Structure formats: C-alpha cells, structure tokens
Amino acid sequence: MPTFPDLIPLPCDETLRVHAFASTVPGPRLIVLGGVHGDETCGTEGIERVRAQLDTGGLQLLRGRLTLVPVANPLARRRGSREGERNLNRLFQPSDHPADYEARLTNLLCPLLAAHDVLLDLHSFQSAGEAFSMIGPRDNSGLLEPFSRGAEEGRLALHIGTPRVVEGWLDIYAAGLAQRAGGAPPDDAALAFGWGTNEYMRSCGGYGVTLECGQHQDPAAPAVAEQAILSALRLLGLVEVPVGARPPVQPTLLRLVSVTDRLDEGDQFVRDWATFDAVAQGEPIGLRNDGTLLRAERDGFIVFPNAQALVGTEWFYFAVESDRVL
C-alpha cells in the first residue's frame, strides 16, 4: 500500500469532499480533480497546497469560480488501490441505475463538471518517466468526439508547462476495441466505456487537460500538480499573474498511434521501459509467452508501459511525433 503524506488525511468513509471558491466578479469556472485513482496521491497534495493558500489569504480569487476535489474516489484512496470497484475514469457518464460504487460517484461528479468551463484532472503513472499532459482531439465535426475548443485546450496544456503533450486517446481506445474484436468497429456502448472525465467535460461544451504529474512515488510530483493548478488559475485570470512571469515554451507534441495488450501472464518486456523511452523501427520491445518477439512498428516512443498489466488489458502504448502546434 502506498505511503501518504501526513498533511493528507485518509478518508475514513466514502464521502466525496468538494471545496468551492466563488468570486463576486464573474469569470471562468475551473474544476480540479485529484485522486480519481486511489494510488495516485500527488494531485491530492497539490490541491491541498493550493487550498491552504486560498484559506490563509496567500492566494486570492479575483473572479470566476474554482472547485477543488482532492479525492475523487474515496473508496479507492482508503484502500490505497487504483480502483474501488472499477476504474472511475471509464464509463464516465451519468446513469439512471448506477450498478457500482464508481457509477454512484460518477452521478455526483458529472453535474459538478457540467457546471464548469474548464477541467484539470491530476494523475500519476506506474512506470518511471517525466510529467506530461494529455489533450483531446483537434476541432472536428466527426462522430467519435466532435469538438470546437481545441485551441483553448491546447493553450491550457501549453501554459501548464510540461515538456511533452500527448494527443489521440479516444482514437486509440476505439482502435484497441476494434483490434480485440478482430477488426469489427466498436458499438456505442463499448466506446462509452472509454469515456473519462475529459471526454465528458468536452461533451458538455467545456474543455479539459489531464496532467500526468510523474511516477506515483516521485517526490517532485506534488509540486508539479500545485504549479499546474496555479498556472491554470493565472491563464484564466482567476488569480494575479506574478510580475516577471515568463512566457511558456512550446513542448514536444506526441500522438498515440497504437496500443498493445498483454495476452498472457508470461508476456514480458525485453527490458524495463519508462514512459517516453525512444525506440527505433524494428527494435525489440517485448516477448510473448509463445516466443513471438514484438518489435517497434516505426521510430517512436513507449508510453505507459505496465509490466504488471492484467491479461487482456493495455500493456503499452506507442506514440510518434505530432505535427500539431499549441
């Protein structure tokens, strides 16, 4: 079980705690989530640091609204596990008949997200690697994820300031479903399971960025979360911008192009991969239990390698450089 910082009290029940700050001056409405996965604690600590600044007057809300949810999945946090009964960041849509704990949580969280303009969702990951942001599609009128606020979403990711930004999640999720079904296109119900917090936010007319603050136990990750919240507040004009603040630097942008599942407990990586490790076309990545050697399909980067992935779930993602500019 992960060790939690002393300043973050473990929830003793399954109560969702929400902290709201509202200025009398109208402005953008930002919501920040931490602890969507119970073993990811850095977002919670980053939120608590910002909340302390607001409570003590060190930070003042100039306009708009800010809502902070330090632990979005109290059951998973209490257990110190990724999930309570299932992954809260899947099938993130309201339900008339919630079938599990996460569905009941989703019914509480969806109205909160829908009442805001912008979402910042704070996470961490299992493998080693640098912090990065994830954004949604470019503006489009397609059926998978129509969107018209790509420029604003990209601007938020730019100002958060991670060295890398990754796009293409829902496209690759849909491709992974088709791959598991032998090439058959996924139906709406299967696609809906791929919806997380950001996809729901976009469906409500807002936009959102997922920030992966680093490896779960990285001592620098809470500061990454804290600075990201402050950057979002400044960008939206909700708090004062410090004198002499530097303009953001254009990050490297990557596009997810494939996902590979772990098919057997005997499937093993050829070495310990970290997120964003570069690989050349043909370079060995993993060895299937049946002796099949998996090689890089082209020059690119390993993303979210998970040596402990359950059979039938995502083992690693593959990304290439994108031509998108934020």
Rank of each mutant, 00 (worst) to 15 (best):
E297A: 14
R65T: 10
L326H: 10
V166M: 06
E265P: 10
A72R: 05
R86G: 04
V270P: 03
L16V: 07
P70G: 05
H159P: 04
L61Y: 01
P26H: 08
E297P: 04
L254H: 06
L59T: 05
F193P: 00
A192G: 03
P111A: 09
S231I: 08
L310N: 11
S23C: 14
A220S: 08
P9R: 06
T15F: 06
E14A: 11
E240Q: 15
G244F: 03
F301G: 04
L122A: 10
E314M: 09
G58L: 01
L326C: 15
F301Q: 03
L7V: 07
V209K: 04
H216E: 08
R295I: 11
V166T: 09
E145N: 08
Q217C: 14
I229Q: 01
F304V: 07
A99S: 14
R104G: 12
P222T: 09
M201A: 14
D139M: 01
L191A: 08
C42N: 14
D290S: 07
A99F: 07
A131N: 05
S322A: 12
P9K: 07
A76R: 03
A157K: 08
I285T: 09
G208H: 02
Q217P: 01
L7E: 12
I8G: 01
G161K: 08
I285E: 07
D55P: 04
E85L: 06
I8F: 02
D39T: 11
G244Y: 03
N89A: 06
D117E: 09
E297I: 11
H116I: 00
E283D: 15
D187V: 11
G206Y: 03
T275D: 05
A115N: 12
R262H: 04
N289Y: 13
A221M: 09
P185W: 01
D188Q: 13
A114V: 06
A128Y: 02
N306E: 10
R77H: 12
D39A: 11
G208L: 00
G196V: 09
A99P: 00
R246E: 14
C42M: 14
A192F: 06
G129P: 01
S133V: 00
L233T: 05
I172H: 00
E145I: 07
C213H: 02
L144W: 04
P251N: 00
A228Y: 10
V165T: 11
F193L: 15
A157Y: 11
T162S: 02
I8N: 07
R295Q: 14
E45S: 12
V320N: 00
G206F: 01
